[in-house]
Design a protein around this nucleic acid. Structure first.
Length: 568
RNA sequence: UGGGCGAUCGUCUAAUGGUAGGACAGUGCCCUUUGGAGGCACUUGUCUAGGUUCGAAUCCUAGUCGCCCAGCCA
């Protein structure tokens, strides 16, 4: 797998509080000679999404800035939800985003050490085996405003706790019958400190350790110590873990191990987008989208298939920054950086999405010319290509109006326009079918305007794209729009669900678009701008005989804006 | 109503006691062989009330509003 890192200059580092903290720790030599060490700790229970991309850019990017290292560590402490498929997809997606880890780690690698430490805490009288049921534990925990009650099993002897815990590990007890708890403070105003569960009994097969274990550590007991084992200096996580920080520190202090520090930042939220793993999984499982990599999904695999570029994703994330406020970023900002990248890099091509035949009555019947076209006007080094032109061509249905509305500059009866890089044409007549649909437009061309300019200096208001009918290839084009129709997909009336906000028009399939012949050679790596239409890439569903293109994003469309305004 | 965290243009984010700046979005104009791109300009903001200070987005006090926490999930 190749990294995408060097393709574009990284955006300059914007100021943010995480960088400030690390810079200060470096300045004061808080960790002595130790290098900055971070980690990205996904749970392999789903695909990575753009929210994870933020964490990845921060974890890897910041460490890199300070000459540090980053481990990829799978937080695989819950065998019931985790799968190898996710372990694989996560690694693929991180690489695609442009990062590589120092070490590949698994929390499950530390199960042995974690178990030894648990014994140590028991011996120190800091942990005990509790026979209460899950229900009872919840009742004993108290509420937000009332303190909890101590479990009747809280003061067992060290010997008994040791014996019981070893037998838990040996598989003598059934799931849920006992847990190991830290002995802290049932009256703490922080519920996380009310004797949190450290281990639960789970007779489940783990994707890495198989059936070696039937007790599994909880997140709180595993995460901080895993950080400590890896000498993580800055353990960045999202805001909802702030309440866990006292517990994170408690375990490290009781154990007297390397003092990793947790720092919380805000998650990424985007308008029109859902980033809840549970809901994303539901969309996949219930078939509202076609898999985790559906181009409408905010997953990294979905964005990749959609044609988004990792460089632009990084630019976006760096621009949005990190803080401790809960904000929602406009999806337009994401799209802006994609367009910005694609405009500079994407090869141009002409493609007619909804074909309307245009017949040039005064063009010689069997003549074919090849006009020279720039591959990318933004980048002359991309060179030129030859595109065939002939008497019968296709133009976009949108580009002809029998009755043009005000400010409509495109083709209409009597109007002259430019066919891009080819000729000026003037429309004269139309042919309709029995249902009244326009099926053909007849026009004449000005032979002197070859290349797209008239020697008499005559101006036209509009330039349109086209493809030669006889030379065009047919392809399927998939147009994507936002998956949800509301800025906040969770904004539903009483009794509704986010599914009610699914945009019914998020996918539109055009079965018979006509493309210029050069597109027959498109490969999976290519990104195109179909001129005047949008950015496109080849979908993996393509076959030798049938190409399928995904629209990454449409071009900004100021005519659509004018039209909309007039309509209102 | 316990605890934790937070509040700066419509949105995201800078300013770390010394000119409130940038990006996105929006609007207008210019330019254009993509109604794309580009250029120029404009608009809008420090949650409130007090206080400290020559000077406060920044420090203090009180309030208001928002988010998170009662999994044997992470």
């Amino acid at each position: 797998m190749t990294l995408n890192r060097s393709e574009a200059p990284e955006t300059p580092a914007l100021s943010n509080f995480l960088r400030d903290i690390i810079a200060e720790d470096v300045r004061t030599r808080k960790y002595g000679d130790a290098t900055i060490q971070t980690r990205f700790p996904p749970e392999p229970n789903g695909y990575l999404h753009i929210g994870h991309a933020k964490a990845i850019c921060l974890d890897f990017g910041l460490a890199d800035e300070f000459g540090g290292k980053t481990n990829l560590r799978f937080d695989d402490t819950n065998p019931e939800k985790e799968e190898q498929e996710y372990v694989d997809s996560i690694q693929r997606d991180i690489h695609w985003l442009g990062f590589d880890w120092e070490r590949l780690c698994f929390a499950s690698d530390y199960f042995g050490q974690l178990y030894e430490w648990a014994l140590q805490l028991i011996r120190a009288g800091k942990a005990y085996v509790d026979d209460l049921s899950a229900d009872q534990i919840r009742q004993y925990r108290g509420t937000l405003t009332e303190p909890g009650k101590e479990s009747p099993w809280r003061n067992r002897s060290v010997e008994e706790n040791l014996d019981l815990f070893q037998r838990m590990k040996a598989g003598e007890f059934s799931d849920g019958s006992r847990v190991l708890r830290a002995k802290i403070d049932m009256a703490s105003p922080n519920l996380n400190m009310r004797d949190p569960v450290m281990y639960r009994i789970l007779h489940a097969t783990h994707h890495r350790t198989g059936d070696d274990w039937c007790i599994y550590p909880m997140y709180d007991y595993a995460h901080g110590q895993s950080d400590s084992i890896e000498q993580v200096t800055h353990s960045m996580c999202s805001l909802e873990f702030a309440d866990h920080q006292p517990l994170y520190r408690w375990f490290i202090e009781q154990l007297g191990i390397f003092p990793s520090q947790q720092i919380e930042f805000d998650r990424l939220s985007l308008t029109y987008t859902l980033l809840s793993k549970r809901k994303l999984l539901q969309l996949v499982k219930e078939g509202f989208v076609n898999g985790w990599d559906d181009p409408r999904m905010p997953t990294l695999s979905g964005l990749r298939r959609r044609g988004f570029s990792p460089e632009a994703l990084r630019t976006f994330i760096n621009t949005v920054g990190a803080s401790r406020t809960n904000g929602i970023v406009d999806i337009e900002m994401l799209e802006h950086f994609q367009r910005d990248y694609l405009n500079r890099r994407a090869r141009r091509a002409m493609a007619v999405l909804r074909p309307l035949k245009l017949i040039i009555d005064n063009y010689p019947e069997n003549q074919v010319e090849h006009v020279e076209v720039q591959n990318n006007p933004e980048d002359p080094s991309a060179g030129t290509r030859l595109v065939p032109f002939s008497r019968e061509i296709y133009i976009e249905m949108d580009d002809f109006r029998e009755l043009p509305p005000p400010k409509y500059y495109r083709l209409s009866p009597g109007k002259e326009v430019r066919l891009r890089n080819a000729y000026f044409v003037t429309a004269h007549s139309i042919v309709k079918d029995s249902a009244g649909n326009i099926v053909e437009v007849h026009c004449t061309y000005d032979p002197a305007s070859r290349g797209g300019n008239s020697p008499d200096g005559r101006k036209v208001k509009s330039t349109m794209h086209w493809v030669s009918a006889a030379h065009a290839i047919s392809a399927e084009v998939r147009l994507y729009d936002k998956l949800f129709s509301k800025p906040d997909p969770n904004d539903v009336p009483e009794g509704g669900t986010f599914l009610d906000n699914l945009n019914p028009d998020s996918l539109q399939i055009l079965a018979d678009a006509r493309l210029e012949p050069s597109l027959a050679g498109a490969t999976a790596e290519d990104r195109y701008q179909f001129e005047r239409v949008g950015y496109f890439c080849l979908d993996p569903d393509s076959s030798e005989t049938k190409k399928v293109f995904n629209r990454t994003l449409p071009l900004k469309d100021s005519w659509a804006k004018i039209e909309k305004k007039a309509g209102v």
